[in-house]
């Protein structure tokens, strides 16, 4: 495993403890800028907990999560911000953020991290298009200078809204949902709801997109569409993607980098090829006993 040259997100000794349960134990990994990084591991390994820490749903027990909008990060800048006790510095690195000090809505708004959920969290009674417009509410309010007039929809707001609809349309096309724009989101089939959730996250114009099991419950065809979509997001917008996924074919196909965790600890980290042949990963996934793991490790020449 080699260090990533220019990481967008550097997770350093992240620890999360729930009472007596150590869910994440000094986990260190990086998300490369403009790359697709997969976070994999057996059930209960702590993958979603990592997501919840990154997106501010949980306050981590310890560790540092630094996100830089423009890299590479100078060590002294990061050390300076950490020592200052501030949550972020808008000027360093085009915006340098310590996510463990920030609240969820700040992480979304300022650090520009978007996420989707394992259990879909759309606004089911709103139309598909409205779901995408709500995701741009902040931009729209900014355009109307946060006024009540903006909330009621004035002229300046209208112009911004047209732009928002344009962006929504772009992502509807990308996700193949244009025809269903005016249907309630809750009426869409499952696969379409998953794509809509990704479209909604992209409408917030994130630097980092966190996808929690986007392929879960999809048929092979939908799964292939999804793979194309995620790749298009990386290639066309340059958004970095962090992905939790159980479908190994998806992971191996699209990931630039794979991080494997088990019981909250990292057991491997590398390119998909490296991971495929990693003895620890094989042991973790096949459930080999410790003694056998040792043998397997020796056999693999690690």
């Amino acid at each position: 495993m080699q260090p990533i040259a220019d990481p967008l997100l550097t997770v350093d000794r992240l620890t999360m403890r729930f009472g007596g349960l150590l869910a994440i134990n000094a986990l260190t990994f990086e998300v490369g800028r403009g790359q697709i990084t997969a976070l994999i591991g057996p059930n209960g390994a702590g993958k979603t907990t990592v997501f919840n820490c990154i997106t501010g749903f949980y306050q981590p027990t310890g560790g540092r999560m630094a996100l830089a909008h423009r890299g590479p990060v100078q060590e002294q800048e990061l050390a300076g911000l950490t020592a200052s006790g501030r949550r972020y510095d808008r000027h360093a690195c085009g915006g340098l953020f310590l996510l463990e000090r920030m609240q969820d809505h700040e992480i979304a708004a300022k650090a520009r991290v978007a996420r989707t959920f394992q259990n879909i969290r759309l606004f089911p009674a709103m139309t598909v298009l409205e779901n995408l417009i709500v995701a741009q509410h902040r931009e729209l309010m900014k355009a109307s200078r946060f006024s009540i007039a903006g909330l009621l929809g004035t002229k300046g707001y209208r112009a911004a809204e047209e732009q928002a609809v344009e962006r929504a349309r772009h992502w509807l096309e990308k996700t193949g949902l244009v025809d269903r724009a005016d249907e309630p989101a809750g009426d869409l089939p499952y696969g379409a709801q998953r794509r809509l959730e990704i479209a909604r996250a992209m409408c917030t114009q994130p630097m980092l997109l966190c996808l929690d099991e986007p392929a879960a419950g999809l048929n092979p065809r939908e799964s292939a569409d999804l793979t194309r979509l995620i790749r298009a997001i990386r290639d066309e917008t340059g958004t970095s993607v962090l992905l939790i996924e159980h479908d190994m074919s998806v992971v191996m196909e699209i990931s630039d980098h794979v991080v494997v965790i088990e019981y909250g600890c990292k057991i491997a980290d590398g390119t998909p090829e490296e991971i495929k042949s990693d003895a620890n990963v094989i042991a973790a996934y096949l459930g080999v006993e410790d003694a056998e793991t040792a043998v397997a490790v020796v056999e693999a020449g690690a």
């Binding site: 969820d104 809505h105 741009q136 509410h137 931009e139 309010m141 929809g153 917030t204």
Partner: peptide, 27 residues
């Protein structure tokens, strides 16, 4: 107001999932 304005949209979003609305930038 509820169906056509941004305020109404924000209200409906909050009604359905307040946490999610907050993450998406609704005050």
């Amino acid at each position: 107001l509820v169906q056509k304005t941004p305020l109404g949209r924000a209200q409906r979003a909050c009604e359905q999932d307040r946490k999610m609305a907050s993450i998406l930038g609704v005050d």
